[in-house]
Write a protein that binds this DNA or RNA. Structure first.
Lengths: 194, 194
DNA sequence: TCATAAACATACGTCACGTATGTGAATGCG
DNA sequence: CGCATTCACATACGTGACGTATGTTTATGA
């Protein structure tokens, strides 16, 4: 059966994004050869430049895809939590676990900021921050935590979680380090409770 | 007067590091041409490869220099503080302010992790973390803050501070954002107090 | 005084990126 | 239903940067 042209296009874009994601995650953005990973899916750099403009454009597309997945996973997690506070703790935990994944560390947390500039300047601008901010705002309104600036706290906690993930991931004893990090986070979070 | 060979060497190394630091800070590591910034100080890539092995080696040297400066500045700040707790707050504030500087953001916080891997794996391993960790340990021993893991807290706070800096630096109203960030940090820190 | 080694410079090969151009197939219109 | 057009790629090429291999000069030490 023949596919329509529109279907071919989305398929080509998806193949390019998938190939780039694989290569960026494996060897990093700088060492990923466009000739290599395009030919791996039966295409050439021509297709890449046509759809994404340049190599950076492709990185943006890859990060957007990963970011969307992360957001979906966070929503999935928090939707199952019993209480609001528990949901927030679960959200932080899930975020920390995602930040432990090598692909996310490399592409989103290291190469992304280096190539595309600080994440604070990205267009999608971190759905995760928005989610955490909303959670904190709800907790503040419900009187569970002390009054404060939800976005500011979300950003601070976000940074703490990301660095905790790096610490764990590069630790010689990840399990023990993870326990230490989680305990520290709980101490910080408990300090926010009324 | 003739300089001894040893003096010439340290001078050459210093010139290369300074030129690279300038270029890395201005256009970023990836877009800094070795031919360009070596010739800017009257040298060639030959000298660079002789002393630093490769481009990454030079980046390591640049970051080591900046890191040493940061550490010295932090020590200078904390040495002047009245109390231990005040010293810790001052240290956090000073760290935040340093992380606001474009050169540090670009070289140490973005290109560094991307090119050299996660900072947690670096040899110097962040004198700043060690300093903060020591401060927290002192506060814990003195009974000022709740008992807890000093290193874990130091790493979490470090991450929070760095992200706060990015937030401020890329904000449309840096002063207002700075106030929000500092308030949030103080809220977090106060949550640690007994 | 001379041999040696170190501190560079020079020349070259390789490779990746981006652009300019070509081509074939699907689409839209008469 | 036929044809022009546009679009989705592929191909070919130029450019520039990195790393290496190889000089060349100068200080050191025996």
């Amino acid at each position: 059966m023949h596919k329509s042209r529109a279907e071919m296009i989305v398929e080509t874009r998806a193949k390019l994004v998938a190939a780039a994601r694989e290569a960026f995650g494996a060897v990093g953005y700088a060492d990923a050869s466009m000739d290599d990973f395009t030919s791996a899916v039966g295409l050439t750099r021509g297709a890449l430049y046509h759809h994404f403009g340049d190599k950076k454009g492709l990185l943006e597309a890859v990060i957007a895809e990963i970011d969307a997945e992360m957001d979906a996973r966070l929503i999935e997690v928090t939707s199952k939590s019993a209480s609001r506070w528990q949901g927030f703790v679960d959200e932080c935990t899930a975020y920390l676990e995602m930040a432990l994944e090598p692909e996310i560390q490399r592409i989103v947390l290291r190469d992304g900021p280096s190539v595309l500039g600080d994440p604070a300047t990205w267009p999608n601008q971190s759905k995760c921050i928005r989610s955490m901010s909303a959670s904190l705002e709800g907790l503040g309104a419900a009187g569970t935590i002390k009054p404060g600036d939800p976005e500011a706290l979300a950003r601070l906690l976000n940074g703490a979680l990301l660095h905790a993930a790096s610490w764990i991931a590069n630790s010689s004893e990840p399990e023990a380090t993870s326990r230490r990090a989680v305990d520290g986070i709980k101490e910080l979070l408990n300090g926010l409770l009324k």
